[in-house]
Nucleic acid binder design. Structure first.
Lengths: 191, 191
DNA sequence: TTATAAAACTAATGACATTAGTTTAGGAGG
DNA sequence: CCTCCTAAACTAATGTCATTAGTTTTATAA
């Protein structure tokens, strides 16, 4: 190491802070360098490109989201787990709107990342749905619907598409309940 | 007029073409000018800024989406109308993925635009839901869930989050049916 | 104490949006 | 047919970026 105690981790965290504060569109290597107290070009000793750095921030974000979901799910059982997941998902997106948005741009950049990180959410969902939906294909359908609803709601809300006075929190809970209401415990006819 | 037969409409359409081909992120005034056969700075005789131009492209996109939805809805009745809307929504997004994405960035730019254009979709939905949901607040909740599901599905699919072999088309139809299945015709107890 | 290499630096390039000021051409009025 | 007017083109310049090449510095390992 040289002069500063800069590590890739510090750079990543500072980049994430900057993005959280001012949005991905307003992020610049110049401002990141300034905040770190170095010249812009020095950043390239730590990252190959801005694109790679942004991808890394996205990976960290999806990893944090997954941790939050796992924690939430592990504390409940059955439908309560699904409800807890939905609440944790929205909570993460609400507290980290800019980082949440970055998650969507990951897959197109890096095919492996999503396989590594994103599947936790999906596999968790598949497991939780098993007591309610026997057929694998149907489980996939429902999981996609569930994720779509969560993501879509958050996305539309953040883009200010819900102008009506009615509480968005209420609408979200209502939406999740509607979806969960279509799940009925199946009698186990195996063996 | 002077030399060329350029109109704001031609510029708008060319910009939309360019965005459709290469994405909003890769759009540049330089390339737009080149395709139009003029110098970059000449564009500023027709638009105040790139931001305004992009906003106009977004407005045109939301307008086209609304037209497609209205047409689809008008040809059916009851739940079939809702199904037709969902199919038309997805169809638009599938054929115009880049333009669809731009719609989401409109509200933050211009508060009036969405009130003018976007409410058609919302009001249409409210009307269609009236035979099934009496309470206004409940209708708002359901309409938000419905839009969230549609948008979320399209958004996740386009970001390549549905890696499973299972058909995305099937999943989409399944999702819409799940939501519509929770709607039951109410007996009209008014008067 | 010295060698090494990571990590800082300076300097330069090329893409980009945007602005100011100038020129040109096509249609309106005589 | 001529002349003016103005929309719409142009040239030139500025400032912001990301990125690269080449140089210097400094912390640590030997």
């Amino acid at each position: 190491m040289s002069r500063k105690g800069l590590s890739s981790e510090i750079i990543l965290n500072t980049a994430a802070d900057l993005i959280s504060e001012r949005g991905e569109d307003n992020f610049s290597m110049r401002e990141l360098a300034e905040r770190l107290g170095i010249k812009t070009s020095s950043l390239y000793n730590h990252t190959a490109s801005m694109q790679e750095l942004l991808a890394d921030v996205g990976k960290a974000a999806i990893s944090n989201l997954n941790k939050a979901l796992e924690k939430a799910v592990s504390e409940k059982k059955g439908k309560d787990s699904l409800m807890a997941m939905a609440i944790a998902y929205r909570s993460f997106a609400k507290h980290n709107p800019e980082l949440y948005k970055m998650i969507l741009s990951i897959p197109s950049i890096n095919n492996k990342t999503l396989s590594d990180c994103g599947h936790i959410l999906v596999n968790e969902l598949y497991d939780l749905l098993e007591p309610y939906i026997a057929a694998y294909e149907e489980r996939v359908h429902f999981a996609r619907a569930f994720r779509s609803a969560m993501h879509g709601f958050i996305s539309l809300e953040h883009a200010d598409f819900f102008r009506n006075q009615i509480s968005a929190d209420d609408s979200y809970m209502n939406m999740v309940k509607i979806l969960l209401s279509t799940l009925t415990e199946r009698e186990d006819i195996s063996c």
